[in-house]
């Protein structure tokens, strides 16, 4: 392995229903189709050296997923970005590729910014629930994990939580329903607090229950920026600031109104 490439990619639209395993198979195949000289582990069953950091759950869309590819021949990151993107199915879109220079990528993913669209939910009620949630010190929620039900605090990890109003347009629906849109920055703690845990919290503190399944998108993840209060671009430390292009991760790619 002579080089490691860090890749930011998006999981969009119907591809949000892909599980992490589905995505890793698709990436392995795309890497082969794109002719990227991926390195393989040694041993009885060689595996391509592709590692993933902080994958979004099945059913959740994302504009900021990250993976790292080890290659046996030096590659131009821009070329890899184009080739890999062309080889992945539409909806798995490569946004950015940089060469790894320093440190561990996973360690930089301290927090995520999420957008949660709630079609048919009353924005005023959502706003009130968010205020109560933020006012609480702890909000104990329960989630069913593989090891059975688990109770934990959903409040502590939430840095910011705001509510906006949207038109709630969904393709194919004739009448646009009102729509509440939550924006939140949540720190990556153990156990992980997910947007649906925060929704559970809103139900517990204010009886807020959206009428249809939430549409969740991760907008960004990275080190927590003290100035903005949100995640910064985790690929920045790898960028060649003397001559490289500015990162795209700082810009909001989707979901902005």
């Amino acid at each position: 392995m002579v080089q490691r490439l860090r890749v930011r990619y998006a999981k969009r639209g119907r591809l949000r229903f892909a599980s992490h395993r589905d995505i890793s198979r698709a990436v392995e195949r795309a890497v082969r189709r794109a002719g990227i000289p991926v390195a393989y582990s040694a041993g009885f069953t060689p595996h391509p050296k592709i590692s993933y950091a902080g994958a979004a759950p099945t059913g959740v869309a994302s504009e900021a997923e990250y993976l790292e590819i080890g290659v046996t021949r030096r590659c131009d990151p821009k070329r890899v970005r184009d080739d890999l993107d062309a080889s992945l199915p539409t909806g798995l879109d490569v946004l950015d590729v940089v060469e790894a220079r320093v440190g561990n990528l996973a360690d930089r993913l301290e927090a995520s910014e999420w957008e949660v669209r709630l079609p048919g939910a009353d924005p005023a009620a959502a706003r009130e629930a968010a205020e109560r949630f933020l006012a609480a010190d702890r909000v104990e929620v329960e989630r069913l994990t593989k090891k059975g039900p688990r109770r934990f605090d959903a409040r502590g990890a939430v840095q910011t939580l705001t509510v906006a109003e949207g038109t709630g347009e969904i393709a194919g629906q004739e009448v646009a329903r009102p729509c509440a849109i939550l924006r939140m920055v949540v720190r990556h703690l153990v156990p992980a607090v997910r947007p649906d845990d925060v929704l559970t919290g809103l139900r517990l503190v204010a009886g807020f229950a959206p009428p249809s399944p939430p549409e969740v998108t991760r907008l960004a993840q990275g080190p927590l920026d003290a100035v903005t209060g949100g995640p910064a671009d985790p690929l920045d430390p790898d960028r060649d600031h003397r001559g490289g292009e500015p990162g795209t991760a700082g810009q909001r790619v989707g979901g902005d109104l």
Binding site: L15, F17, D22, R29, T58, G59, T90, G91
Partner: peptide, 15 residues
């Protein structure tokens, strides 16, 4: 789809 097992099998879009 959020309520069923392995929803990805119903969305199409295969290469």
């Amino acid at each position: 789809l959020p309520h069923v097992q392995k929803p990805i099998q119903y969305v199409g879009g295969e290469l």
